[in-house]
Design a protein around this nucleic acid. Structure first.
Length: 897
DNA sequence: CCGACTACTTAGCAATTAGTAT
DNA sequence: ATACTAATTGCTAAGTAGTCGG
């Protein structure tokens, strides 16, 4: 890697290349909110419980979803529901008040449209409306169609999902497990009741579906119907295996400084900083550059200004962007000259060239095991273990407080691997007679010692690690220094699969250089193997792929673990942008696509009918494709792999989905569907057992092959991206009102939440959630007491008397009635804010906003909205996201998805 | 048309760090 | 300064999907 090489300035984030241009796209108008309201349908019925977290989560989920506001959205959301809805988020002002339950909210939103499907495409941006409809998720459309529409509103559509509360059982179960569960439950209830749609009142979107949320817990056992839930895990704390941890690469930079970006730098070369080289230039700057530079200033500036955007980067991009429309899409490809791709090249190993030159230093290995000598007890007696045996025993000991520890599958798998290391005639004959407490205690003690280190010691340690890792953190691709995503080889440990994974507890052996294949430019020096005496398995020079290194997964040797560039790299940024552009194309074609599959709901060919119905579900519910899985994986499903038992038909035309999806997260949602879809599902289920495939004629290849006929490069996952982005765009445009920045941020979060619900992105309730809520409630109570006291003092002050003694026994200052009144008002405002915060907290406890922000919502929607409404982008995107979405920063303020 | 490979994105939770409150 | 939270970052599992050979 030498430094010299680069000339390019590097822009860290990637801007370099692309940018702008494309963005422009349509300027369209943004519409802002106009109406907001619509009606809403109620839907409500439901309640959704949401799951709680993990465990719970599963169960809980409710069914509801709501469609996004406008319509676009998909329909419903799955589980979570309930809570979410609530109000808090909403903006304070108006809505604030209530907070309806999540479910409702969404729904309320309502989409407008109703029609849906049928409609033709229209699309184009221009009108949103039309489009919208099309765009919108079906749900929305449905409603219309279907009937339902309960409410009025415009579109009412929504599917009605209802979420039923149902699942109580599950819920209960969960509860039992944790407190959380309770909450969930409650939540639902409460939520439901209370709020229902909250805020939104205005909005109201329909929500189609809404989920039910119930919470069941899935955890382990499954609850209800289906199966078992998988996700049990726990959350335990301790645990973890080893502990290694390392600093983060990211910032390493310290040293550098960079130039920022590009430009300046240009001259400078930056280099990677590796050690290797030297240093000079390098390092330092660079890194941070990106970050730094960006972080601070620029962004902000950009934002604010809005329009201009200039701020930041300048580059061409800006310009381009500004331009408005412009071609955009097609261009993209063009743009980057960097890798020229052909037009359609997509990311994946498509055989296209991904780079011309690639330099990097390979990977860093975890330190060798350090023996601690603490003995475990076997049948009460200390046992001597070899370092290797001790290492594995320690991995297990350290997991004592996790849920895995007591799972038979985990213990069996662990024992199976450990006993091989113990050897045939070892005194330890079974796991249950082993007492790992001494090691666990040693581990806890070590942890405490670390915690007690002085700040200075910690800093030194951190710096040492950084110095050691710095060279691995960077790669130079086509002359541009880029961060490497995961340059640390995974340390050995016990496999922690999610859900009921058949391999949980198996030993994940240590990876050595001879397991690793390196990919590097032909001209670049081959990274030196960091472990003396060992060598890489292989060194390749394949520029049709983006990985820097890989090794076979020790748990499943057929699979690989890759080392890629970080998300902030230009390579990843480009691919990200292409992903969103594809979704925007889908937006343009969605009307036709919906019309096409609607027509096939009654096709005589079963395969075609299944394709039509599956596509409808993916479009409307944002389900994942559902690839086939092996028996040695947790059994979870997606659309194509749904089992008959995962879908219940509820007359006259509702479907209740209940299955474990990716990561064994439960999806529970009851949604109203087109009568023909309802009928078709019944046909697909006829004569089959619960565990048979619902879509027996289908798999993801067939489905995607069909989708490609409708639109080039279209695949099932594009619908999720489309639904998420269109929902965000719609909600932001409809819900944003004049107001201060915090109010606008609330609107954004509400929209983000809607998307998260649609995508069923969940998180476990934090261990301290209950305590936190109680604490807040306590504080609110204290404030109320204060008000009482102040009222009395005010009364006395008006009569010219001095205040009573404070509850703390101290004398209070003599205040004027005016001052007291002001104080009362302030305190009341404080109480209201706290109550809103508490509600929000409750609503959001199982909703994970981050996943959709990182993977599904086109960042240009967010950036453009921030520019239009003078919201600093830093309020929405953290440092990592700013770096990842550098390519979207100079989007035209009028950009619409 | 399959299924084995292969490459790359998406996901939740744990560990860290930053930020506040005490 | 300390204790707790809240927010971020890291980790790596679990998906999607393209390609290739038969």
């Amino acid at each position: 890697m030498a430094t010299e090489a680069f000339v390019k300035p590097v822009v860290p984030n990637g801007h370099d290349g692309y940018d702008d241009d494309d963005e422009d796209e349509m300027p369209l108008v943004f519409k802002r909110s106009s109406n907001s309201n619509n009606n809403n349908n109620t839907s409500s019925s439901s309640n959704r419980p949401r799951p709680n977290n993990n465990a719970q989560r599963s169960s809980s989920i409710g069914s509801t979803k709501s469609p996004p506001p406008s319509s676009r959205s998909p329909l419903t959301s799955p589980n979570r529901s309930a809570s979410s809805g609530r109000s808090s988020l909403m903006k304070p002002s108006s809505s604030s008040v209530k907070s309806p339950p999540v479910g409702e909210d969404r729904r309320s939103v309502a989409s407008k449209e109703r029609n849906g499907l049928g409609k033709a495409p229209s699309v184009s941006k221009s009108d949103d409306e039309d489009d919208s409809e099309d765009d919108k998720p079906l749900s929305a459309r449905l409603k219309g169609d279907t009937k339902q529409g309960s409410s009025s509103g415009r579109g009412s559509s929504q599917l009605p999902v209802q979420k039923s509360n149902v699942r109580p059982q599950g819920v209960n179960d969960n509860n039992s497990r944790n407190r959380d569960s309770d909450e969930k439950v409650q939540t639902k209830t409460n939520v439901g009741a209370s709020s229902s749609k909250p805020i939104h009142s205005d909005q109201k979107r329909p929500l189609v579906n809404h989920i039910n949320r119930n919470g069941l817990k899935p955890k382990i056992e499954g609850n209800s119907s289906q199966g078992p839930a998988k996700r049990p895990l726990e959350k335990g704390n301790s645990s973890n295996q080893s502990s290694v941890k390392r600093p983060k690469p990211s910032e390493p930079a310290r040293p550098v400084k960079i130039e920022q970006g590009s430009r300046s730098t240009a001259t400078t070369p930056d280099r990677k900083g590796n050690n290797l080289e030297d240093s000079k230039p390098l390092r330092v700057n660079q890194v941070e550059d990106n970050s730094d530079g960006d972080d601070h200033v620029p962004i902000a500036s950009r934002m604010s200004s809005n329009k201009k955007a200039s701020s930041a980067k300048p580059n061409a991009s800006m310009i381009a962007s500004s331009s408005r429309t412009i071609a955009k899409k097609p261009n993209k490809w063009v743009k980057d000259s960097k890798y020229s791709k052909s037009s359609r090249s997509l990311p994946s190993g498509d055989g296209q060239k991904k780079w011309k030159t690639l330099e990097h230093n390979g990977v860093i290995f975890p330190p060798p095991y350090k023996r601690h000598g603490v003995k475990i007890l076997y049948q009460g007696k200390p046992v001597d273990l070899t370092p290797e045996q001790e290492e594995v025993a320690t991995m297990f000991a350290v997991m004592r407080e996790t849920e895995y520890y007591n799972k038979q599958m985990f213990r069996d798998n662990f024992w199976n691997d450990w006993r091989k290391i113990l050897g045939k005639n070892h005194v330890i004959k079974n796991l249950d007679d082993c007492d790992f407490s001494p090691i666990y205690e040693w581990y806890m003690q070590e942890k405490e010692i670390k915690k007690q280190m002085s700040a200075e010691e910690k800093r030194i340690l951190k710096e040492e690690k950084l110095a050691q890792e710095e060279k691995y953190m960077w790669a130079v691709l086509d002359g541009v220094r880029e961060k490497v995503g995961n340059f640390r080889v995974e340390p050995p440990g016990l496999f922690r699969g999610r859900g009921e994974h058949p391999k949980m507890g198996k030993l994940k052996k240590r990876i050595r250089p001879c397991d690793i294949t390196i990919n590097i430019g032909k001209e670049a020096p081959v990274p030196e193997c960091p472990i003396p005496g060992e060598r890489w398995k292989e060194v390749k020079h394949d520029n049709t792929v983006t990985w820097l290194a890989f090794w076979n997964d020790p748990i499943n040797p057929k699979e690989f673990k890759y080392v890629f560039l970080a998300a902030s790299s230009a390579l990843k940024g480009l691919s990200d942008k292409e992903k969103y552009e594809k979704a925007r194309k889908l937006k343009d074609r969605i009307g036709h696509i919906r019309a096409a599959y609607t027509k096939d709901f009654s096709n005589k060919d079963v395969t075609k009918r299944q394709i039509a119905v599956a596509t409808y579900l993916i479009d409307k519910l944002a389900l994942r494709a559902g690839n086939e899985k092996d028996d040695d994986e947790a059994d979870t499903v997606g659309c194509c792999t749904l089992k008959v038992g995962n879908v219940d038909c509820i007359p006259p035309n509702k479907l209740k989905f209940d299955f474990l999806g990716k990561d064994s997260i439960q999806y529970v949602n009851t949604v109203e569907v087109e009568p023909l879809v309802y009928k078709a599902i019944g046909q697909f289920q006829a004569g089959k057992s619960k565990t048979d495939d619902l879509f027996d004629e289908l798999d993801t290849s067939k489905l995607n092959a069909h989708l490609k006929e409708l639109m080039p490069a279209l695949t099932a996952k594009v619908f999720r991206t489309y639904n998420a982005s269109i929902t965000l765009d719609d909600m932001l445009s409809k819900e944003t009102r004049d107001g201060d920045v915090p109010e606008k941020i609330v609107v954004y979060q509400q929209a983000n939440k809607e998307v998260a619900i649609i995508c069923n992105h969940q998180r476990t309730v934090s261990k301290s959630h209950g305590a936190q809520v109680e604490k807040l409630a306590l504080k609110i109570e204290e404030l109320r007491e204060q008000i009482k006291e102040l009222d009395i003092d005010l009364d006395r002050a008006k009569k010219g008397r001095t205040p009573l003694m404070g509850s703390d026994g101290k004398r209070k200052r003599n205040l004027t009635p005016e001052a007291l009144e002001k104080k009362i008002m302030q305190t009341n405002a404080k109480i209201e804010k706290m109550e809103r915060d508490m509600q929000t907290k409750e609503d959001m406890k199982t909703v994970a906003l981050g996943t959709s922000k990182i993977n599904y919502m086109d960042p240009r929607i967010t950036v453009a909205w921030c520019k239009r409404h003078d919201v600093p982008i830093e309020k929405i995107f953290n440092k990592s996201l700013l770096a990842k979405f550098a390519w979207a920063m100079d989007v035209d303020p009028e950009f619409r998805f």
